[in-house]
Design a protein around this nucleic acid. Structure first.
Lengths: 196, 196
DNA sequence: CGCTTAAGTCATCCCCCGTTGACATCTGTC
DNA sequence: GACAGATGTCAACGGGGGATGACTTAAGCG
């Protein structure tokens, strides 16, 4: 279960000494590796290699694998993922998006795979919980508003996550009548969670 | 990242020598561990301990960790995993279950959690797609019945998966009013996907 | 009873990978 | 251009955990 292939293009000209750029490169490589292989399956040596850096630097800059993971996690969760949708058409908008294919939005998919990996590892699930609370559930909660915002945000987030996973697993975009029904059903569910 | 608590009840009377029973015990323990901790996070020593067996036997009977994982996976995908539920109380039953905590091992969700783990493992991800299609979506589809069974099964599966993930990253069981609202909302969503 | 074979146990090996600290090299500043 | 501090490199260590094989014990059988 080792990853033989490196992902980053060959770095013929090793970058000038620049701690920030190096951190950035490590972080980017880490996100890809964590997304693809999970916490345990991602190896610091591989990440460092892809970043064109030495594994020891990960320790210096991030304080170890755990720190790197946390940093990558934070870097992966956009705090305002939900709130730019219009409430009136939320259900339909999201449903339509989910009917498409995951590969249509590559960067987001990477981020999401990463989060899924984090969720399925008990050790990292706790970290994810904190991050999700702050950066995902919080905004949704604020957006929903009202007394029951908290549990409702939970349900909405769950459904949202489920749809993302389904789209990830599905190997092609939905079409025709199937697509229509899917969108209609999904939109109904989502909208019912936002309204009322 | 070690699992201190054993799950199986104390085996005061070590079972009589019986290869089949031992295999069975190992397999059952493995399914729990893999479901909870994923491939990397599940340790053969722990599994063997829970099965009341020696780790070396895993090698003899399953040819290594990989073989055990495959065997457990195969054993986990029961084609009728969903149909145990009553249609009338499906929404409420599932919602109540999901309000609990992931550490409360729920017999009925083991298989799904296991599949979720398999989904995030590059080596087994391919298996999952087939498994989900044949063994999960299929039964749900048949169970729902009717003309639009296919896309509706999709939506139902999505929501189900989302709830599983949410439960994984939540660090405690929901309580009080929050729990009630969560259950009510979730039950409504699920039931609406089954009925009509 | 012995004998044989399967079932189970134990100690040990060995590889993998995160971590560490000493060392080398670059870069900016006076 | 020399010094200091930051940046990058290297080799080695050590723990964890899967694998292995020799050893022990139980079960079936004549």
């Amino acid at each position: 279960m080792t990853n033989t292939a490196t992902l980053a293009p060959e770095r013929s000209a090793p970058r000038k000494r620049d701690a920030e750029a190096t951190k950035r490169a490590i972080l980017d490589a880490a996100k890809i590796h964590f997304a693809r292989s999970g916490y345990d399956g991602a190896y610091l040596r591989d990440i460092a290699a892809d970043a064109g850096a030495d594994a020891a630097l990960i320790n210096r800059y991030f304080g170890g694998k755990d720190g790197l993971f946390q940093a990558a996690l934070k870097d992966s969760i956009a705090p305002d993922a939900i709130s730019h949708w219009s409430r009136a058409s939320f259900g339909l908008d999201v449903a339509t998006m989910m009917a498409g294919h995951a590969h249509q939005q590559v960067e987001r998919t990477h981020a999401f795979e990463f989060l899924l990996q984090a969720a399925t590892n008990p050790a990292t699930a706790k970290l994810l919980n904190v991050a999700v609370q702050e950066r995902f559930l919080g905004p949704i909660r604020a957006w929903i508003g009202g007394k029951d915002a908290e549990p409702r945000a939970r349900v909405l987030a769950s459904v949202f996550i489920g749809l993302l996973v389904e789209r990830l697993i599905r190997d092609e975009a939905l079409e025709g009548a199937e697509r229509d029904i899917f969108i209609k059903r999904t939109a109904t569910v989502l909208q019912s969670l936002v309204e009322n």
